[in-house]
Amino acid sequence: MIVLIDAGNTRLKLGWIDPETAVRESHPLAIRHHDLHQIAAWLDHLAPAPRAALGVNVAGKALADALDELFRRRYGYAISWISGQAQAAGVRNAYDTPSQLGPDRWVSMIGLARHAHDGPQLLASFGTATTLDTLGPDPTGHAGGLVFHGGLILPGPALMRSSLASGTANLPEANAAPAAYPTHTQQAIGSGIAAAQAGALLRQWREGLERFGQAPRVYSTGGAWPQVEEEVQRGLARAQSDLNLPRQAAQWLPSPALDGLARLALSDAE
């Protein structure tokens, strides 16, 4: 058994995989950074004891050190932390400097590859930051090859709300459902944030349609998805209708980073 760790900006997710059978956890453990004490109880229920731990970390060195210490004390080994790579598990990284790609984004692309079909895919991750990343066919024509083509990073919904509240004298930190024509300030802020998030996604969706000649299939993930889901799905459906394309709603993925780590664990075991 190998433990899988996705250490994000505000919370951690932990799962596991048996590389011999490819069996995965049914429900990952999701906790805040200050709840690391819960990991020991979760590990107590794993049998047999894990022989390794594989992870990605975007939350800083202090958190990585604390997790490493926990695994050293308990099992005698540190976590193998993944960084951006030029290629892994059948996916090529088109970043100019592959190591500069955030490890969570990289392994999420590897996880997204399990849903691969003949066309491009767009993963929209709505967290502390929003990332919009495209996985698609290899432009060199390599048969069966998948390439991370690049993507956008922008502030997530919570950062947009807090920046308005802290950077202005009179605007509150609002959290209201979007409306076409907001009639009060809370609604205006909530609608503006949802529109910005959905607009960025639709921009990348249209870029994918132009580059690949086929509309990307959209997948969503991240804790802030419920705040923008209505606006994203409405905008996507409208764009598909305007272009006479089949209706295809954004599909939720609970843990693409853990999925990618699981694929890496399996490829390492081969």
Rank of each mutant, 00 (worst) to 15 (best):
M1I: 07
V3C: 04
L4P: 01
L4E: 01
T10P: 04
R11D: 08
L12A: 02
K13W: 01
G15I: 05
W16F: 14
I17D: 00
D18W: 04
E20D: 14
T21M: 11
V23G: 11
E25A: 15
E25M: 12
S26G: 12
S26T: 13
H27C: 10
H33V: 05
H34T: 09
D35R: 15
A41N: 12
W42M: 13
W42T: 05
L43C: 02
D44K: 08
L46A: 05
L46E: 07
A47K: 12
R51W: 09
A53T: 01
L54M: 10
L54D: 09
G55F: 06
A59S: 15
A64Y: 03
A66V: 06
E69Y: 06
F71V: 05
A78G: 14
I79E: 01
S80Y: 11
I82C: 04
I82H: 02
S83Y: 10
G84H: 00
G84C: 06
A88Y: 00
A88E: 03
V91A: 04
V91K: 03
N93F: 00
D96Q: 15
T97A: 12
T97M: 09
P98T: 04
P98Q: 05
Q100N: 13
W106R: 03
V107P: 01
I110Q: 04
I110H: 01
L112C: 06
R114P: 02
R114W: 10
H115D: 00
A116Q: 10
A116K: 06
D118T: 08
P120A: 12
A124N: 08
S125Y: 08
F126I: 09
T128Y: 10
A129R: 09
T130I: 11
T130F: 08
T131C: 08
G136F: 00
D138A: 02
D138C: 09
T140W: 06
T140A: 13
G141N: 09
G145M: 06
G150D: 01
L152I: 09
L152Q: 12
I153Q: 00
L154P: 07
L154Y: 08
G156W: 03
A158M: 14
M160R: 02
S163Q: 04
S163V: 03
S166L: 15
G167T: 04
T168P: 03
A169L: 13
L171C: 05
P178H: 01
P182D: 06
H184C: 14
A188E: 07
A188C: 13
I189A: 04
I189K: 11
S191T: 12
G192K: 10
I193T: 05
A194E: 07
A196G: 14
L202D: 04
Q204H: 13
W205K: 07
R206L: 14
E210Q: 14
E210I: 11
R211Q: 14
Q214A: 12
S220W: 12
T221S: 15
G222N: 05
G223S: 05
W225G: 00
E229D: 08
E230I: 10
E231Q: 15
Q233V: 00
G235H: 02
L236P: 00
A237E: 10
R238D: 07
D242Q: 14
L243A: 15
L245R: 11
R247M: 08
A249E: 11
L253C: 03
S255W: 12
G260T: 07
G260H: 03
G260N: 07
L261F: 07
R263K: 12
L264N: 07
L266V: 07
S267G: 02
S267N: 09
D268N: 11
